[in-house]
Design a protein around this nucleic acid. Sequence first.
DNA 1: CTGTTAGCGCTTTCAC
DNA 2: GTGAAAGCGCTAACAG
Lengths: 337, 337
Amino acid sequence: MSARIQDVAREAGVSTATVSRALRGLPNVSDQTRTTVSRVADQLGYVISRSASRLATGRTLAIAVIAPFIERWFFAQAVAAIEGELRQSGFDALLVGLAQPDGSAREPFQADALKGRVDGIVVLTVPLTGRELDDLRGLHLPTIFVGAAVPGAMSVRIDDVAASRVATRHLLELGHRRIAYVGGDPRQPINFTAPADRRAGWMASLREAGIEPDPRWDVPGHFTAAAGARAARELLALPEPPTAIFCASDEMAFGVLAAARERGIRVPEQLSVIGIDGHEFAELVGLTTVVQPVAGQGALAARMVLEALRDERERGQEHVVLPTHLALRDTTSSAIT
Amino acid sequence: MSARIQDVAREAGVSTATVSRALRGLPNVSDQTRTTVSRVADQLGYVISRSASRLATGRTLAIAVIAPFIERWFFAQAVAAIEGELRQSGFDALLVGLAQPDGSAREPFQADALKGRVDGIVVLTVPLTGRELDDLRGLHLPTIFVGAAVPGAMSVRIDDVAASRVATRHLLELGHRRIAYVGGDPRQPINFTAPADRRAGWMASLREAGIEPDPRWDVPGHFTAAAGARAARELLALPEPPTAIFCASDEMAFGVLAAARERGIRVPEQLSVIGIDGHEFAELVGLTTVVQPVAGQGALAARMVLEALRDERERGQEHVVLPTHLALRDTTSSAIT
DNA sequence: CTGTTAGCGCTTTCAC
DNA sequence: GTGAAAGCGCTAACAG
């Protein structure tokens, strides 16, 4: 149905080889010829067949973007940025989620299903098992991780420990002593270091301030607002409830704020709340938070895989750490002593 | 580097044709043979070359998912659902955004860049120009629109006029007379009917109640929280401000709520607010809203393209309208008269 | 039930 | 600067 390279060649009075060269901007084609070919090509509405091209070159011009939950804020932001960057460079973004149809657990990640389908891979803070990780490496494709540093591959992330310390210290400086942490799932899968690192930063900061964190101050929030709210209810029901809650994500912080409101606890007068992310709504509701560049990490990661594709030699294992900053707003204030 | 069908054939002592048939589960292969072939195949770590397969069959086993803004709530939810559905059926999800690198206007959509790259297309409420739409049709691929009914193609959506009437009538029944509408951009591109339809529903409901909508009650909210907040500030500064604000999306409603808080206006006592969507946070903050099935629309759309791919004959132009429902919460109450 | 054999449409040496 | 021709790895008749 569609025009093929043959048709263009015939119509332009040249060989298919010349058409190929002309259209791809390769050298050794006279301007004359190139012009003619281009004209004929779009006269015929000719578009290179990606399939044929892929088969002939072995390059797919596609990058896989792997995310556990596409619908969540962090991932949606990152995916959008990655897609934009890829598109701009003429690459296809092959989106691969890991959610089960029923939404329950996550699906095992089949690395070699990607074999031959993409030229590179961007992995967004996915908790991968050692086996999955090995298979991924077995692909021998430029791979970059966003949100966690994985040995043997490139990565873009923030310093989660540091970000967490900034948040915790901010609360300490305000005079808080009973500072709770609402984080991810307690069972920490390999390669999903953010929650663990953030918890570590919280703990370390407290200890440095001479405070031994009460185990009851450490509650899982599963990185969702609903679970954050549950966590807060639990915390606020303690005999001696915390005066400040540090959440490992803004979404959980929103949940905490809702739970506080529901109990009639005023923020920040009676309870300080701080998050991590820089979610659009954080500004809206005045949530104090440690802002991380989410789109920035995604865009950079995309550029880095593309770069690695270019410099085959330098298939580096670069690890980039992007800065974060504290956005002071209205949900934190001095502790009432 | 990787094993090819030849290798498997040789090793298994059969022809490549048999390997192909065996591995794809086609009939006319003895169980005996199929077993052997499968075993040999994964012994060798053989994976069908998608590129070669595509070239030979003309089928890509990929579906394009086109969205204007992947990072926004509605689109992220829909994309996630679509991706899941496609993956489950062994299809690749080729994500195509329309955002400019600089994030400003949207990029012109190049339909024929998709030529030969996908078997079908899911378009998420993208404002397409007539030209773009024509090009899209020119691809002759099963195409489905989510969020708008486009003649000549399939679609899945909600009844925006009806949803809007439900919201507006709810406010009317509570006794409100000055009901504002915070919607999308005033310039309505073709094929982006939701904002226009929602406005129409609002207008019609008011008129039926004998109220002539004041033009100043109709403010653009650009479907973002920030713009929603701006819209609310504008409305609340009117000499006779509305007693209720209906937002065409929950995100805009969150903005309105924030603006109200910032002005010290109590919701729902002094101002009622209602949205459309069923955003995760709506429940959290008690926003009354008209809930629409976002993931549901996405999943269904995906299933419908796949179905159309199967039943070549019946390449229908089915238009499915999914139901919505009012979720009564805490941001609406009787007007103080 | 299985093998042979043309392609699918492009890219890429190697000649000229 | 351009053309001829041999693949890329699989699939789909067709023959047996």
